[in-house]
Amino acid sequence: MVEATIVRVNSLAAVSRDSASSPQVSLAVLPDAAKLVFRGRPSSIGAAGEAFGVELPQTANRFREAAGRKAYWLGPDEWLLEAIGVDSSELFSTMSEKLASHSCSLVDVSHRSDSMAIRGPMSEYVLNHGCPLDLSERAFPVGMCTRTILGKSPIVLSRTEQEVFHLDVWRSFSPYVWSFLDEARQEFLHDQSARSPT
């Protein structure tokens, strides 16, 4: 066997280089994570939560977080499980073992998407350039997550803090999403006093 060190390349590496930061709205690439999609019968949900270490939220469009792991509700039988600093193959094997007797599906999608954060008081407004959802806190509170659209790309959007959103985007769409948001925030980059009209 030939030894070679294969480096994982993040799809946002090139597009995020030299991204100007702004107190009003800035973009950041989030670290690579182990990501699994869990789908299954209701009877398996509890076991999946136990195996993952985070109880899977059963309220629609909510994520739950514990010890650096997040479980996102994506659909009534579908969760995205995310763990930073964990080898996805190991996570997959240990969970698969624990779920062997359950009727469910576990699939490693760690490389399917890359993630970014948008933060700052103008985040909602900038996201609304492509996302048709009401992102005000009353409609989209901290702890909410959902698949939705940004421009012409599907995304998974979650609100982690009042002024911080995370976007999980399929790799081939992620440079588009980043560039879209970067373009939309132009009006705030050179004018610190610019305010969102809303």
Binding site: V37, R39, G40, R41, D77, E78, S103, C104, S105, V107, D108, V109, S110, H111, R112, S113, W170, R171, S172
Partner: peptide, 12 residues
Amino acid sequence: LDVWLTSTTEQW
């Protein structure tokens, strides 16, 4: 049917 689908187009 006990079967679930997951897109892995961009995983591989």
